[in-house]
C-alpha cells in the first residue's frame, strides 16, 4: 500500500458516498445514469468473487464488501425507492454494446483461462468503459448538477491515482499488471474532457454546462 493507492481508494469511496448522499438528501436520482450504476455492480460482483477464495488483507476485504454493497444500494435507490425521479428518457445507452465486447475481450486476452481469472479480467475491461452511459447522459442533457460533477470528478480521480500507484509499484517493487494498467489508462482518458470542464467551470463556481 502506498499513498497513491490509498488516495485512489479514498477517492473511490468518496465518489460513492457523494452519490448516495446526493440521492438520499435530494430524494432524487435525476442526472444519474442507472445504466452506469448497473455496470459498476457487474464490475464489483465479478471482480470480487475472489472474496470466496483469497484473503489479501482485512482492508481489502472490507473495501470489497463496501463497494459491492453500496453499488447494490445505489441500484435499489434508483430503480425502486426513487424510481419516479430516474431520468430514463435520457439514459438510453445500450449497455450490451459494452458488456459483450468486454466479455469477448476477456475471453481472448487474460492471464489464465479460468472462470475467476476471466471474470476478473472482464471486470477490469468493463470498468474502464462503465462510465460511458453516464457521460452520454450528461452530453444528452447538456448539463450536470454540481454534486454530480463532484461525484464524477472523485470517481475519475480514483483511477488516475491508481495510475500513479502503478508507476510507483513498477519503480519500487518491479510489480506491474499490464491488463489493469492499459485499462486504467483508457478509463482515465475517457474522463479527460470532463476533467477539463470540471476544472474550468465547476471549480470556478459555474454549473457544468456543455456548449450548445
Amino acid at each position: 500500500m502506498n499513498i497513491f493507492r490509498l488516495l485512489g481508494d479514498l477517492s473511490h469511496l468518496l465518489a460513492i458516498i457523494i452519490l448516495l448522499l446526493k440521492i438520499w438528501k435530494s430524494r432524487s436520482c435525476a442526472g444519474i445514469s442507472g445504466k452506469s450504476q448497473i455496470l459498476f455492480s457487474v464490475v464489483y460482483t465479478t471482480r470480487y468473487l475472489d472474496l470466496l477464495t483469497t484473503h489479501v488483507s482485512p482492508y481489502n476485504t472490507v473495501m470489497k464488501l463496501v463497494f459491492i454493497f453500496t453499488s447494490y444500494a445505489t441500484i435499489y435507490l434508483m430503480y425502486v425507492k426513487f424510481k419516479a425521479t430516474y431520468d430514463h428518457n435520457h439514459d438510453t445507452f445500450r449497455i450490451e454494446f459494452l458488456l459483450i465486447p468486454t466479455f469477448i475481450l476477456a475471453l481472448l486476452i487474460n492471464h489464465e483461462f479460468t472462470v475467476l481469472e476471466v471474470l476478473w479480467t472482464f471486470s477490469i475491461y468493463l470498468e474502464s468503459v462503465a462510465i460511458l452511459p453516464q457521460l452520454f447522459l450528461v452530453s444528452k442533457t447538456r448539463e450536470a448538477e454540481s454534486i454530480t460533477s463532484h461525484y464524477l470528478f472523485a470517481l475519475g480521480s480514483y483511477r488516475a491515482l491508481y495510475l500513479l500507484n502503478w508507476v510507483y509499484r513498477y519503480v519500487v517493487e518491479s510489480h506491474y499488471e499490464l491488463i489493469a494498467i492499459i485499462s486504467g489508462v483508457v478509463q482515465t482518458i475517457l474522463y479527460c474532457d470532463f476533467f477539463y470542464l470540471y476544472i474550468t467551470k465547476v471549480l470556478k463556481g459555474k454549473k457544468l454546462q456543455l456548449p450548445a
Partner: peptide
C-alpha cells in the same frame, strides 16, 4: 499458462 499472481488491489 504462466501462474497468475493474486490480485492485491481493488
Amino acid at each position: 499458462a504462466a501462474p497468475v499472481e493474486e490480485h492485491d488491489e481493488l
